[in-house]
Write a protein that binds this DNA or RNA. Structure first.
Lengths: 262, 262
DNA sequence: CGGAATCTTGATTAGGTTCAAGATGAGTGG
DNA sequence: CCACTCATCTTGAACCTAATCAAGATTCCG
């Protein structure tokens, strides 16, 4: 049940006449050199030639459709993955077999870094919408990190950032429902802004249920909070569209950490 | 018997007459080669000569006394630190300036890995008891990781494990008080067992207040849970001494993850 | 258009916090 | 060794937030 073989097996060529597209790279024109989000991703601080080297080990398959899995818990870990476009969610299953969402991943973010140490994915990763992925064979990445100091440093930085943001996430246990959802929205907003998108207006790629699951709240509470925020003129929502009207108050509600530089 | 007496047996306070001990290595005889917990720490899988190389960049100062800080939020990040003996807690301050505990660190565990990416510690680290630390200059470690593939891999593994355990920690948001405390105790137990200590009997290095803060519960709730567990014959406690009588039920309560290999 | 999934809103309940008061324990000095 | 203090811990009662149960409303999609 390897992710890659699944992808290849399910792969449908865009035009039956062009067989070459079925080969290693789905879009041969896509590469790190031209990628809009390389600034957020692994190639940061690399020289042109180093980026080419990195790019040469990266595989790009056809996009994942909504609901398709990138990998599953228990799968062997061959690759780590960078989101190119779209959104992933990662989750585990608890004793009762219910989903426990552990994270949402936006373009430029790297998933699969948990589980390096045991060569096995401890969680599931699934697309919330049509999502394009760069697959980076971990073994080759790790070797390359031995050769390219900047890449080694960037890999450490990405992991360090993940550790920090996971610890910030954990601070949610100390917050009430109102604060949790505010923190979630502010966090998403910040991440969209980094990607050159609007910090005020975006479309939530996940359902209310997903948000609730992630934050440890029920779907009813999330729904009620959205209406409460709306009445307080903090936000404006229609379905998954959201407009953050009062970022300052939301941030304050979120109780952003004093020493958080994010 | 307990961790603290073990430490006292190993450690003798410096006499004020011997100033030389205050220099680079407090105990010149302490090194990675002979360290009991090297198996849990950075030297895993290194050759003898590689361990010597690693050891040569590590600094060991006098022990931290209870309440002494190893670093503070905002401090520049020169080193990452491995706990040799004792216990650290890490915390941040929220808007209101109240402490938010983010983690407890036992011997062999590495702290300071958050904040690599911005060369600044995002949190505080303070000793909960007399604690000996190995300071590892990050720049040198990173360079060494370029030369020694096994060290590079071990560093990645340590960070990967931290990411995974932080994500498991985050699952506490989905648990109620009873489950949270059980998860906490089982987690501590597992970590002590890995260190060759008893999984059933140990002394909690932190106060009820610290536990509550960490888990997002009030001290009263923690206290009530301890008595409830005791009445249910799950544990036996007297102050900070704790005996886990029914590990199976506790683990079940904790709701350990299906795919968790820890 | 119709059925399913998702979302909203209301009423009730329960788990955990808050407020309050004692109890226990560790550390200090006489 | 005891008395005293301060910090930590325990227990009780009242309150409140968020979960649960329940019923509609809305949106999505074939």
């Amino acid at each position: 049940m390897d992710a890659r073989t699944r992808i290849n097996a399910e792969y449908l060529m865009p035009t039956s006449s062009d067989a070459s597209l079925a080969s290693r790279n789905f879009h041969s024109r896509i590469n790190c050199q031209d990628c809009a989000i390389s600034e957020l991703c692994l190639p940061v601080a690399l020289l042109e030639s180093e980026i080419e080297h990195l790019d040469s080990i990266i595989k790009r398959n056809r996009p994942l459709q909504k609901g398709e899995h990138l990998y599953r818990a228990g799968d062997g870990l061959q690759c780590v993955y960078a989101v190119r476009t779209g959104t992933l969610k990662t989750y585990t299953l608890n004793n009762e077999g219910t989903e426990q969402i552990t994270g949402f991943y936006l373009p430029g973010e790297v998933v699969g870094l948990d589980g390096l140490h045991e060569h096995t994915h401890p969680s599931f990763a699934v697309a919330l919408e049509t999502t394009m992925i760069c697959s980076i064979p971990f073994h080759q990445l790790e070797e390359l990190a031995g050769i390219i100091p900047n890449l080694r440093m960037q890999l450490l930085k990405i992991m360090s950032r993940e550790i920090q943001s996971d610890q910030e996430l954990f601070q949610l246990t100390k917050k009430n429902a109102e604060e949790r959802l505010a923190a979630f929205l502010v966090n998403l907003s910040t991440r969209y802004a980094k990607r050159g998108l609007s910090a005020q207006n975006f479309i939530l790629p996940m359902s209310r249920g997903d948000i609730g699951n992630y934050l440890g709240l029920t779907i009813e509470t999330v729904s009620r909070l959205f209406t409460r925020y709306q009445k307080a003129d903090l936000i404006d929502t229609k379905g998954r569209e959201i407009h953050l009207k009062d970022m300052k108050s939301l941030s304050q509600l979120a109780g952003t950490n004093c020493h958080s530089s994010v």
